[in-house]
Computed example of a mutant assay.
Amino acid sequence: MYKVLAYVLAISLVVIAAGAYVINDYLFSETTSTAQEEVNQEEEIENMRKNGGLVSSEEQGKFKEEGLNPFGDNVSKDDLMDYHVKEYIHGMSHQKVRAAEKWGFYEMTDERINWLRSAVQTNNDLMDAKLYKEILNKWSKRDFTTIDVDHNRIWRLERGTVGKANGVLTPEEEKEFIEKNR
C-alpha cells in the first residue's frame, strides 16, 4: 500500500514540476515578446518624433495623390495602431498648446486631420477609437478651444510624465512655434 502511495506521490510531483515548467516557459516567452514589441514601438515612435515635422507641403501633396500617409511614415490607414494615432494627435497638438516641454511635432494640417480621422473611423482594432474620434471630429471643425485638454488626455495614455499642457497658445505664439520647428 505504501509503495502505491509513494508511486502516486512521485508521479504527481513530476506532473506538477513539468506543468510549472511549461507555464513558466509560456509566461516568460509572452513577457519577452510583449517587452520586445514595446521596444519596437518605442523605437518607431522616436523615429516619428525625429522626422515628424519635416514633411513639406509639397511632399504632403504627393502623399495625398498616391494615397499615402501624410505624416511621412510607411504606415497605411489599415495598419495604424494605437501608438501611431496617439503619436500623431499628440505631435499635432504641440503647435497649439502651452507646455514646459514638447517632444515631437507634426504640423497640423486639414489633410493630416482628415486622413487620420478617416483611418480611425474604419479601423476596428483601435482600443481608444472613441477618444480619437472625439478629438479629430472637433479638430476637423476647427474647434481647438480644449486642445490642451485633448493633448493631456492623449499624453496620459502615453504615460507622460513631463510636458503636461497648461493652456492654449495665442495665434502669434503658434505661428512662432511652427516657424521655429519647421
Score class of each variant (00 low, 15 high):
M127K: 08
S29E: 11
E59Q: 15
E46A: 14
I23T: 04
N123S: 00
L68I: 03
L136A: 03
D128N: 10
F177Y: 15
N24K: 07
E134R: 11
E58L: 12
V14C: 08
A99D: 09
S57H: 02
Y106E: 10
Y88V: 02
A20F: 09
E174P: 08
P171E: 05
L126I: 15
Q60M: 12
N152P: 02
I11T: 13
G61E: 06
T170Y: 02
E176I: 09
I11V: 13
I147Y: 04
R112Y: 04
N47P: 01
T109P: 08
T34L: 10
F71D: 03
G160C: 08
E65R: 15
Y21V: 11
K164F: 15
E65A: 13
E172Y: 12
M108C: 10
M1H: 13
V39K: 14
M48D: 10
K50C: 02
D110N: 10
E174M: 14
K138D: 11
R49F: 06
E158W: 01
V120A: 00
Y26Q: 04
E58Q: 09
E174L: 08
E30P: 00
A20V: 12
V97M: 12
A20T: 04
E58R: 07
F144Y: 15
T32M: 06
D143Q: 10
L131A: 11
R153K: 14
A129Q: 14
I23W: 09
V75I: 05
W139H: 11
A35C: 00
K180N: 09
A119I: 09
N40D: 14
R159W: 01
T161Y: 12
N47A: 13
I89W: 04
N47G: 02
G53C: 08
T122V: 00
V75R: 01
K130R: 07
D79N: 04
T32A: 11
E176N: 07
V162A: 12
T146K: 15
V8H: 03
L157F: 02
D128S: 12
I45N: 09
D128L: 08
Q41N: 07
W115K: 05
E37C: 01
T31M: 12
